[in-house]
Computed example of a mutant assay.
Amino acid sequence: MLYRYNDFLESMIFQFKEGRDIALRPVFFHEVMQELNDKFRQYAIVLMPSSKEKMLERGFLPVREMLQACKLEIIEPFYKTSNHKQSLQNMQNRALISQVIQRRSDVSLPQKPLLLVDDVCTSGSTILCAYQKLLPHTYKIEALVLAAHPLFVESCDEKGLLKRMRFSIL
């Protein structure tokens, strides 16, 4: 986690994603890009999926764009079966994310550690789902999110997420 999700960051991400303000792409990971490239040089980045509808609407994949200056291999082994936005779901429906996120059979995983990357972590359900679907992968799996919602940060210990999966903090 690089930042705690707040009103300012929410408006920046919204402007970038929904306002299609692609000029903002370098600002999100800019301050840590060199460290990201150095610290995780042996890793491949795994992006969390966007729905096909959102991708077509925006014309780009937000996290891929944010990581344009990244030198690491970037793969997209997941897809969404529906336009399911986690932040709009209640806690019960967030648990259903494993039915929405599916593993693509046409994308093979590289034989190296994986770094799961997403822009916003609200409940941890998306990252945890991806992690569980990648468990047969025998290499190390870590996660990095641009911003985590304060409620997620506060509840990490209660849910035991940090014990089940290492969240990287640069």
Rank of each mutant, 00 (worst) to 15 (best):
R94G: 13
M91R: 15
V107W: 03
P113T: 00
L96T: 10
Q86P: 12
E73P: 02
F78Y: 09
A95R: 08
K112F: 05
I75E: 09
S87F: 00
L96A: 10
M91T: 15
S105Y: 13
E76W: 00
K85P: 11
L109G: 02
N93H: 15
K112C: 01
L115F: 07
H84Q: 00
L115A: 02
L96C: 09
I101V: 15
N83K: 04
E73V: 06
K85I: 14
S82H: 11
H84L: 14
D119A: 06
I75D: 02
Q99I: 11
Q111I: 12
D119S: 10
H84W: 11
V100M: 01
N83S: 08
L114M: 14
I74F: 03
L72Y: 09
V107G: 14
Q99E: 13
V120F: 02
Y79V: 06
L116M: 00
Q86K: 08
K80D: 08
S87W: 01
N90Q: 05
K80C: 01
S108H: 10
L96Q: 09
N93V: 09
Q111S: 13
V117F: 13
E76V: 04
S105V: 15
L116Q: 06
K85H: 05
V100E: 08
S82V: 11
E73N: 04
E73T: 07
N90F: 09
I75M: 02
P110V: 08
I101R: 10
V117M: 04
Q111G: 03
N83C: 01
M91Q: 09
Y79C: 04
